[in-house]
Design a protein around this nucleic acid. Sequence first.
DNA 1: AAGGCTCTCAACCGCTGTGCC
DNA 2: TGGCACAGCGGTTGAGAGCCT
Length: 240
Amino acid sequence: MLRLRQPYVKKRTWTPDEDHKLTAYIMRYGICNWNKMPKFAGLQRSGKSCRLRWMNYLRPNVRRGNFSREEEETIIHLQKKLGNRWSAIAARLPYRTDNDIKNYWNTRLKKRVLLDNNNSASATTKISSSVEENSCDADSSAALLNIPTTTDFPEPLTYGTAVSSSGCQCHQTVEIDNSYIMRETFVSSENYWEILSFLEQQLMTEGLDCEAVSPNSQLWHSHHELYYDPVDDFWANPLI
DNA sequence: AAGGCTCTCAACCGCTGTGCC
DNA sequence: TGGCACAGCGGTTGAGAGCCT
C-alpha cells in the first residue's frame, strides 16, 4: 500500500489558550465526538489532534516526568512479552500514556536493552527473570513491581451530585446542572484539586469559553444525542 | 560566542478495528 | 453484506533544548 505523505508538515504546538479551551470544553461537556469537538470548542484543530492532546497531556490522570526504576523494568519486561503494543503496555502502567512509553522506549530503554544484550546477556536475563520468577504473566507484574493502584490514592471529593463506581476502578460520573455529565477515571488527589479549581473557575467565569457550544443550544443537543456510553471508556479497566 | 550535532518529546500521519445503518 | 464514520494504534518526524567543538 502506497503511503502518501505531505511533503512538509509544520507542527503546531498547542498554545495555553488552546489547551484551556479544550480542557474547559471537556470538563464541562465531556467527550462525545472528537471530530466535532474542535468546532464546538472553538478550536482550529482536527479531532485527532484534540484527542491526542487530551489523552497524552491534558487528561488529569497522566503522570509526567521521570520514569521510576520499577516502571522502566515493567516496560522492558512487557515490551519483551508483548512487543510494541504500546497501548497494551500503557494499560498496565497507570498514569502513563502509550505515547510516553513509546517515546521512552525508543529514546532510552531500547538502547539500554541493546547495550545490555551486547555487553552481558546475563544482565538482561536477570531483569526479566526477576519478574518472571514471581509472575508468570504480564498481568500480575504491575502489582509485583509496586505500581500504584487506585487504592493508593485518596478518593477525591466529587464535584456535583452523583458518583458511581464500577468494580475496582474509581470511575466517577458527575452530574452538573442536571443537564450534562462529566466523567473521570481515578485522578490523583493533587491533580484532582488542580482540575477542580480550574473547573470551578470555568463555571464561574461565563464567557471565558464563549466559543464553546452551550449545552442547552440546539447545536449541542444535536451532537450530544450520542454522548456517553459507559462501556466505551478508554480507562474503563486500566489494570487489565 | 556561534554553529553543528544529538537527544527528547509533542504532534502528525496512515492504517486498522469497530459499530452503525 | 458492504459502506461509512469514528476511535484508537503504532510509526514517524519536526521543534526545540542542551551539548559539543
